[in-house]
Lab assay of single mutants.
Amino acid sequence: KVMEIKLIKGPKGLGFSIAGGVGNQHIPGDNSIYVTKIIEGGAAHKDGRLQIGDKILAVNSVGLEDVMHEDAVAALKNTYDVVYLKVAKP
């Protein structure tokens, strides 16, 4: 199931950690970017929809399929206060 989640960045950013990407696979044979941690009190935690194990398909208009881990981190960092995440639920 794919959904779009709109998050408003807090003082600590979006409030979640990711793993995965080309050269840094979270699941062997899979280059996808996965949510590995939700920080308590952060934007994602308060919103409640993003969960550990969700796959991040895109940030705003930037696709995160088959990208390097660093590029995924940069895509999440290089955002304004309002961030749209395209997410696939497991």
Rank of each mutant, 00 (worst) to 15 (best):
K6L: 04
H69A: 09
V73K: 12
Y80K: 12
R49D: 05
D30G: 03
K9W: 04
S61L: 09
D47G: 04
T36F: 04
E70P: 10
P90N: 15
V22R: 07
E40Q: 09
V35W: 00
Y80V: 10
M3D: 05
I56E: 01
G21R: 03
G63E: 15
I38V: 13
G15N: 01
L7Q: 02
I5T: 02
E70D: 15
K86F: 05
A44P: 01
I18V: 15
V35C: 13
T36P: 00
L14K: 01
I52R: 10
A72G: 06
K1I: 05
A19E: 09
I18D: 00
A72V: 08
K46R: 10
A88G: 13
D30L: 03
I27F: 15
D81E: 13
E4K: 14
D81P: 14
G42A: 10
A72E: 01
G48H: 06
E70V: 14
G13L: 03
D71K: 15
N78Y: 08
T36D: 15
P28H: 15
D71V: 10
G29L: 06
N24R: 14
G15A: 03
L85A: 01
G23N: 06
V67Y: 14
G23W: 06
I5C: 03
N24E: 15
D54T: 06
E70R: 14
G53S: 05
A58T: 14
D81I: 04
A75S: 12
G13H: 04
G10T: 15
V83L: 09
A19R: 13
L76E: 01
D66G: 13
L7Y: 05
R49I: 11
M3C: 07
K89H: 09
L50Y: 00
V73P: 02
S61E: 11
L7V: 08
L7E: 00
V22W: 05
G10E: 10
K89F: 04
V22M: 10
D71F: 07
V67I: 13
G41K: 07
A74D: 15
K1P: 02
V83M: 07
I56S: 00
I38D: 00
G10C: 12
I38Y: 00
K55W: 03
N31S: 08
Y34P: 01
I8V: 12
G10L: 05
Y34E: 02
E40I: 14
G23H: 09
D54C: 07
V82G: 10
D71S: 13
M68N: 13
D30W: 02
V59D: 01
L85N: 01
K77T: 09
E70G: 12
N31I: 03
A58L: 07
E40N: 11
I56H: 00
K89T: 11
K37L: 04
V73H: 11
S32G: 05
E40D: 10
V73T: 10
G15F: 00
V62D: 11
P90R: 06
P90W: 07
A72P: 02
V2K: 06
P11Q: 08
K9I: 15
V83C: 12
D30I: 04
M68S: 09
V59I: 15
K77Q: 09
G21K: 02
G42H: 07
Y34W: 05
I38T: 03
K37D: 13
K37R: 09
D71Y: 08
G10R: 05
D47N: 11
K86Y: 06
H45D: 14
L50E: 00
V62E: 15
D54Q: 07
A43E: 13
I18N: 01
L7N: 02
F16I: 07
N31T: 10
G42R: 06
S32V: 02
D54N: 05
V83Y: 08
Q51E: 15
E70Q: 14
G48R: 12
I39H: 12
Y80E: 09
L64R: 01
H26Q: 05
K1V: 04
D66C: 13
H69F: 07
M3N: 12
G42K: 04
M3Y: 14
I39Y: 09
I33H: 06
L14E: 03
G15D: 03
N60W: 01
A74C: 14
A43F: 03
V73E: 14
V73Y: 08
I33L: 07
A58H: 07
G48W: 01
V73L: 11
